[in-house]
């Protein structure tokens, strides 16, 4: 069992692929109700972290807990409580948006998903696309279906991997609003991988910076802005941190 109260509790997590070390002794806690922005350059190990936390990948050593459950031993319990939107999901193109959602809802144990689908699409203001095929969807529309499948079973934690990649400014803004609304109205903790600093500044409550598999910085956004108040933007802060 996890000792801390944190909803995500990572303890000296290490992941090695054949020759490369993707994560090196990572320690990180995220509290309930936070919107956590996980920053880092390409290949820093952000996706690996999320893959381990969502129980898709086993760590080489170390432990991690979600809602108090061990990612290695209690995967099923964790998967009941999380939602995940990987990067660049294209969904089943031969199915409609509604059919895609129905499939994933059933796999989350929702036996009569019709109502759930309606309410989720309603929440996302997306009702009119329920019966359209995914193959006709734009990137932004797919991303909304991605969110819909990830929240349809009312998870406690939502993992988003580069959710804004490939979206236009309008799409980015819509997504930001959805994330804030989810956090506020449904009280979902959000763990977001990203390298879009402007977005982090607008949505996150806490940030962490990962560099070469190690956590090099973590604090609330407020504290961060105060501590580095001489720097004029988050961007400068980030570059200073990452090049250290």
């Amino acid at each position: 069992m996890s000792k801390s109260s944190a909803i995500i509790d990572i303890q000296s997590l290490t992941k090695k692929y054949k020759e490369t070390i993707a994560l090196n002794n990572l320690n990180l806690q995220v509290e309930r109700g936070e919107i956590f922005g996980f920053l880092g350059h390409n290949g820093a190990g952000k996706t690996t972290t999320v893959n381990i936390l969502t129980t898709l990948l086993a760590p080489t050593s170390g432990r991690a807990f979600i809602c108090g459950f061990n990612v290695e031993k209690e995967g099923l319990e964790i998967r009941k409580r999380i939602g995940y939107l990987p990067e660049n999901v294209k969904f089943y193109e031969n199915l409609t948006a509604g059919e895609n959602l129905e499939f994933f809802a059933k796999l989350s144990g929702i036996e009569k998903p019709e109502e759930k689908i309606k309410s989720v699409l309603n929440f996302l203001d997306f009702q009119k696309f329920e019966n359209k095929k995914i193959s006709q969807f734009s990137k932004g529309m797919r991303q909304r279906i991605g969110i819909a499948q990830a929240i349809i079973h009312d998870p406690e934690v939502l993992f988003l991997d580069e959710p804004t990649s490939g979206l236009d400014p309008m799409g980015v803004r819509n997504l930001r609003e959805i994330i804030l609304k989810l956090n506020k109205e449904k009280n979902i903790t959000i763990f977001m991988n990203t390298h879009l600093l402007s977005e982090v500044a607008k949505t996150c409550t806490t940030i962490g910076v990962l560099g070469h598999g190690e956590l090099i910085y973590k604090d609330t956004l407020k504290q961060t802005m105060e501590r580095f108040k001489d720097e004029n933007s988050l961007e400068t802060i980030y570059f200073n941190l990452d090049t250290k």
Partner: peptide
């Protein structure tokens, strides 16, 4: 192949299914 190219395997695996 229908899961692999589209990253839907992650979605399947992150559900509470063994």
């Amino acid at each position: 192949s229908k899961e692999k190219g589209k990253n839907t395997l992650q979605l399947l695996l992150s559900r509470p299914v063994k």
